[in-house]
Design a protein around this nucleic acid. Structure first.
Lengths: 122, 122
DNA sequence: GTCGTTGCAAAGCGTTTGCAGCCTA
DNA sequence: TAGGCTGCAAACGCTTTGCAACGAC
């Protein structure tokens, strides 16, 4: 059973106030503004329980720690600038993915990652 | 300047004989059949120098260590079975990716990952 | 002979876990 | 009050690095 604690509230708030996926470390920094005794272990435990509940979604980027963002934003993907490292959300989806899937395979989900330069760095 | 050593040869062979991306640990196991004193540090160092040379390509999968495959196979993506964990190469590419890219951004590369069940597990 | 390469061991870094005390329900 | 939650520190697994010996060119 899930309990509502100050820590979990702070972690959820941190994610809500962000407009991009946050790493556990970034979550910790932000959430400590609410609960300054917060420990990194609690962040990891909360994020993974939020993930199980479907409240947050993990965003995996090559070479970076896993980031998390709130679920319910609708289907989208991510663009990472190779210069400044920031991660942006991109609307839409290329589609056609079932056409790529080998015969006999069952496609359940997918991830599309774009890399390049953002508007400011380009 | 790059030198040809038995170790690098063994690592390259390991990748050549595989039909799927290998993790550094898997590369080590296979390459040790040629050079049994091979150490894991050498595998990491060689893989990253091969990557810089453009000889191999890293394949990143959420939750797994980075795998490597030989470059020059043509553009393709990957499908991972959530049951058996195997990673398959997928021909083709969804295209349309420039349409997803925000205005002012410069798209340089991308990655598409498919998840689901393979033919045997489905 | 030079200097890049190797293997070992130690260090790094992100993540997980054991445990005793805390606090929500 | 029960049992989930928390913070700390230790443990973990993968990856990187320091260093002295090695070996390709």
């Amino acid at each position: 059973m899930e309990r509502n604690t100050r820590q979990r509230g702070a972690i959820r708030s941190a994610l809500e106030s962000a407009d991009r996926p946050l790493s556990p470390q970034e979550v910790l920094t932000r959430a400590r503004q609410d609960v300054d005794s917060l420990g990194i272990a609690t962040v990891y435990r909360s994020l993974s329980s939020f993930e199980k509940e479907g409240l947050v979604i993990p965003v995996h980027l090559p070479g970076d720690p896993t980031r998390y963002e709130l679920a319910g934003k609708g289907h989208h993907h991510h663009f990472r600038c190779r210069k400044c490292g920031r991660v942006f959300e991109v609307e839409g989806c290329p589609g056609n993915l079932h056409q790529l899937t080998p015969v006999g395979f069952k496609l359940e989900s997918h991830e599309v990652l774009l890399f390049g330069l953002c508007g400011e760095c380009g």
